[in-house]
């Protein structure tokens, strides 16, 4: 859907819990139709930011809007535009999956044959059809996660937020989930993803924001973020194990990892491979293979946040 507004706009969003500042004035926009990654270590403020956006938490200050609709002043319109898959698994002891989807449709004033067909489609697409009469406590963790996804999509929101959707989820469900999410993205939906699996974010996201301590540390396209990183990596496979003290000083200072098969070097981007080959020769290393690659999102992330996910 074409819109003159950003899919989501955060303007100086602040949230405090007593003395704790969970968000310290976060401002950025999410492009319409973008597959957007919101990354950060635990406690970075990602979920708080998402909760401010979905209306689950009221910001202490600042403004959040979905396609130009303020989430406080125009909450009805804003909530019709966004569907959130929450991080925590949710149960309901009274209603079956199908009933829950019917009820949720009712909250959005959606009724009738077309809505029933959409619910059928969601159940089919998320492999929940066989369980549509089951109660949530009868489902596995992965199934519950699928129910949450169906609930978030029941009103066909333009912006879909997935808050760590693959935490504790098996490979099959991951594939189902990502296939479905990619098809939603192709249809023009904006997808906002938070995840601790950075390889997933790198593969899926067009833009990435990195948060730490309630502040935005970086926001760029994934490619730009990876290119901006000042290092690349060289995997050297050796014919025999090499002791690190056998390497010349320039190699030792760039040594990232080492094992029986060789070592990994972290190189500044302006260092020529010839120069590295000279250092390897000086160290009398018998090289079997060399493999060069750019930084991964995980390495960029670690560089920006200074901690592991």
């Amino acid at each position: 859907m074409s819109t003159p507004f950003p899919a989501v706009s955060f303007q100086n969003v602040q949230k405090s819990y007593g003395d704790l500042s969970a968000l310290k004035g976060v401002s950025f926009d999410v492009r319409p139709g973008c597959f957007f990654g919101l990354l950060g270590p635990n406690g970075a403020g990602k979920s708080t930011l998402i909760n401010c956006m979905s209306g689950l938490v009221r910001p202490t200050d600042g403004q959040v809007s979905i396609q130009g609709q303020d989430v406080i002043k125009n909450y009805r319109e804003a909530r019709r535009l966004v569907g959130v898959v929450p991080q925590e698994l949710i149960a309901d002891p009274f209603f079956s999956i199908r009933e829950l989807l019917d009820i949720q449709s009712g909250y959005f004033a959606l009724r009738g044959a077309a809505q029933n067909r959409w619910i059928d489609y969601l159940l089919e697409r998320l492999a929940l059809k066989d369980k549509s009469d089951a109660l949530t406590h009868e489902l596995s963790g992965g199934m519950k996660r699928r129910v949450l996804i169906a609930m978030a999509l029941v009103h066909k929101p333009q912006v879909v937020v997935l808050d760590e959707p693959t935490a504790g989820v098996d490979v099959d469900l991951r594939k189902t989930l990502w296939d479905f999410t990619k098809s939603l993205h192709r249809q023009g939906h904006t997808i906002i993803l938070t995840t601790h699996y950075l390889e997933e974010a790198e593969a899926l996201c067009e833009d990435v924001a990195i948060m730490k301590g309630g502040e935005l540390k970086a926001l760029e396209t994934t490619d730009a973020l990876l290119c901006r990183h000042q290092y690349r990596y060289l995997r050297v496979k050796t014919m025999a194990p090499v002791a690190s003290d056998a390497l010349v000083a320039p190699l030792q200072s760039r040594l990232e990892e080492q094992d029986a098969n060789g070592f990994l070097l972290r190189l500044e981007k302006d260092i020529a491979i010839n120069e590295v080959l000279d250092w390897l020769g000086q160290s009398q290393v018998s090289v079997q293979d060399i493999n060069s690659r750019d930084a991964t999102l995980e390495e960029v992330f670690l560089d920006l946040t200074g901690e592991a996910q």
Binding site: G55, L56, Y75, E77, V84, D92, Y107
Partner: peptide, 9 residues
């Protein structure tokens, strides 16, 4: 499950 209602309009 109160979340479902809170996310609705």
């Amino acid at each position: 499950n109160l979340t479902f209602v809170l996310l609705s309009p």
